[in-house]
Design a binder for these strands. Structure first.
Lengths: 338, 338
DNA sequence: TTGTACGCGTTATCAA
DNA sequence: TTGATAACGCGTACAA
């Protein structure tokens, strides 16, 4: 008899298992005195309830599944950290699964979560969300998306937490324009990602507000990673008239851009200003420190989990939560040279 | 009847539940013909087995618990990614829990894993391992530690995967000395961490091999994070005779050191060479690119999980796996000036 | 206030 | 090759 069960305790305490069960869950139905005695015996026997058996009986597992495209992505890691913290505080455990943005794997992961009867599923930064959202809603468990890249499909079962990209990127443009920049470039992500689309819209809106012309040659695309940013920046430098400031889709791209400029001996921010997006922790340790848009990453995770808790308990919650970014001005932006 | 169970299938197929169970697990005991029919019905009814019920019956959950000090630590995130991948490939799901290096929380987490009856526990970079290792071994589930910071206590239940710090840091010293450096500083972590102790030992060994004197003033301590590295570097610069090369305990510290040097207008590597340790992805996007020691982070995660799988299946495994680091020479190291 | 009896959805052990 | 029946550890009506 490896694991001690309530029956063992019942035997030791000369009561029935239900009484033990009640005593341990602090039910008012059991006499305080005996309840106390039972609890002491439980502790002395090193009893730990089986969440498995409990789940089978209650039909609740107190677990939630978290799908990420990659846990090695620092942005996502922060979000997950917020989810996990809140979950743990409320007695929930989190299953973590990597999808690698691979549709087959995503389907597999969702099935696995289903079989484990998770009480809810949180998906972060799903790029192929559209593919399996229908699959998800079949499960009839609450689903919360964080920074969903396909917010177009309206589904009453889907809740989301995302940043207000438009507003934040408009602020970036105001900052740059306020410094006196006119030739401002945009290094985007691949086409079709909602966050890129929205940030780009902010870029154009900023230009429009200032009555500056939109110059298509100043818009190049990377891949959201340093390498793409590097190449995109090379293309901008090859222009007959390069920009004096560059607004990068995210910090990772900005890192690549910074790298290219360093390689060309171009000084940031004296020669060219750079702005990122995300405020990854590295942004505070580049040289120069990166001006960027901070997203409350951990908090977004917390909010997603709080939304989840409400949904699980049957309370309705705001379907689409928008959080605000914060422009963090550091060292990579300055007025243009002349 | 929300969830369809094997009983529902049994009814639909006019057989008994055990037969359904056997058919679905491809038992040879059931006639191929009926088995096929049962499986089709199962699919058409959208059946998904309940891992909960299965676990209760089999006493195996096919889950493992992963304790991390912080999932936002990029090193750990990579390791976890390796664990998760391997786990998933073998039908295991992973519970992720943050301990924040907080002993109370670690104990809570371990209890939670116990209650969920995980088949094994992997702990990464535990700094307070000593505190709850006894607690862990009580559970009688396999435990694998990754980069345990307290490998001193020999416990037959504990398995580990760690990097050969001594060897790697000796290589770092050989590289630096080979470039012609004589005044080489060491920026360490806080006292008591095994990896710091070992890397520091490599530092001294490297010095000894070259017959260079060990100069205590060239050893300063950070906190393993950029801020600590920054301050440590300031202290080194304040020396009457600053070093020409600095070996940093890890990349995060090196980032801080780089930052300080940038602030002082000191060129890396022309004026001072810098070496890190870990090869975090940022190391390939600093300016200049960081010379560092690569650790097979994902692979360490995979190896830990593979060890776990062996232990779970009763096969014994190597108790202490040491993996080798790899010196990656990039741009932050060069011969000293004169 | 406590005990009896049953159910949760599977697997396992028999016997048929 | 299949079907009864029990078992896993807990929660919960219902009865006492």
């Amino acid at each position: 008899m490896q694991q001690v069960s309530i029956k063992d305790i019942a035997r030791a305490a000369n009561v029935s298992h239900p009484t033990v069960s009640r005593a341990l869950s602090h039910s008012p139905l059991v006499k305080g005195e005996t309840a106390e005695r039972i609890r002491q015996i439980a502790v002395s026997m090193g009893y730990r309830p089986s969440a498995i058996a409990r789940s089978l009986a209650t039909k609740k597992t107190k677990t939630i599944g978290v799908v990420v495209t990659s846990i090695a992505d620092p942005f996502i890691a922060d979000v997950v950290s917020g989810i996990e913290e809140t979950a743990n505080d409320h007695g929930y455990s989190v299953f973590l699964a990597n999808s690698n943005a691979n549709p087959d794997r995503e389907v597999k992961v969702v099935h696995s979560f289903h079989e484990r009867r998770v009480d809810g599923i949180i998906v972060t930064a799903s790029r192929v969300g559209a593919l399996y959202v229908p699959l998800l809603s079949q499960l009839k468990v609450p689903i919360v998306l964080i920074n969903n890249q396909h917010p177009d499909e309206p589904d009453q079962f889907i809740y989301s937490v995302m940043i207000d990209n438009l507003k934040a990127s408009t602020q970036v443009m105001e900052h740059l324009i306020g410094l006196g920049h006119r030739r401002i470039a945009y290094i985007g992500d691949q086409a079709g990602f909602q966050s890129d689309t929205e940030r780009f819209a902010g870029y154009r809106q900023g230009l429009a507000f200032a009555d500056y012309p939109f110059l298509p040659e100043l818009v190049v695309h990377g891949d959201g990673k340093p390498e793409g940013g590097r190449q995109a920046m090379e293309r901008l430098l090859a222009l007959p008239m390069p920009p004096t400031a560059v607004f990068c889709y995210n910090d990772m791209s900005a890192l690549g851009a910074l790298r290219t400029l360093y390689g060309h001996g171009i000084n940031v921010p004296d020669d060219i200003s750079i702005v990122g997006f995300d405020d990854l922790s590295i942004a505070s340790f580049t040289s120069p420190l990166l001006t960027t848009v901070g997203q409350p990453k951990q908090q977004m995770g917390r909010m997603a989990m709080e939304t989840m808790l409400k949904l699980i308990s049957g309370v309705d919650s705001k379907a689409n939560i928008k959080v605000e970014g914060e422009l963090i001005i550091r060292e990579s932006t300055a007025p243009p040279k002349s």
